[in-house]
């Protein structure tokens, strides 16, 4: 304990003697001129959206109008594709797909391989985090 106190005093004395590092004499001016420069640039960095909110509202109204006109008001338009949709679900895929047989071993192997790739992503991230970590 006694030794610690001595060491503490000694380090305090040494660090105090060294004192502050002196920044260059023009330091304050440099900071202030940087602040002025950034203040002048400020307006140019205000971003304007390409489409204003009004424009978006206009587009939405137009799209809604076109669709509602076509669906509800246009008597000529047959919305036939709606009724044809069920051909997709009713379609029998089985006869048209190539017949590929995959062994269970291959499936398990691929799954385990994929699992290890996922684990590695975290391990590599951890590795690099530690590598650049500061002492």
């Amino acid at each position: 304990m006694e030794e610690n106190k001595e060491l503490d005093d000694f380090i305090r004395k040494s660090v105090k003697e060294l004192g502050f590092e002196q920044p260059p004499s023009n330091f304050t001016d440099a900071v202030l001129s940087k602040i002025n420069a950034s203040a002048q640039q400020l307006p140019t960095t205000v971003y304007q959206p390409v489409l204003s909110k009004k424009a978006w509202a206009g587009i939405l109204i137009m799209v809604a109008f076109v669709f509602s006109y076509l669906i509800f008001l246009d008597p000529e338009l047959e919305v036939g594709w709606l009724s044809r949709l069920n051909t997709l679900t009713a379609f029998d895929w089985s006869g048209n797909l190539p017949d590929i047989r995959i062994s269970n071993t291959f499936v398990y192997g691929t799954l385990i391989g994929a699992f290890f790739v996922v684990v590695q992503v975290f391990m590599i991230k951890h590795f690099f985090d530690r590598r650049y970590e500061l002492s």
Partner: peptide
């Protein structure tokens, strides 16, 4: 008042730089 900032810079520049 950017000038008021000058006071703060002068007060803390030594420690920040150190």
């Amino acid at each position: 008042d950017a000038g008021a900032f000058e006071f703060l810079v002068n007060r803390y520049k030594h420690m920040v730089f150190t």
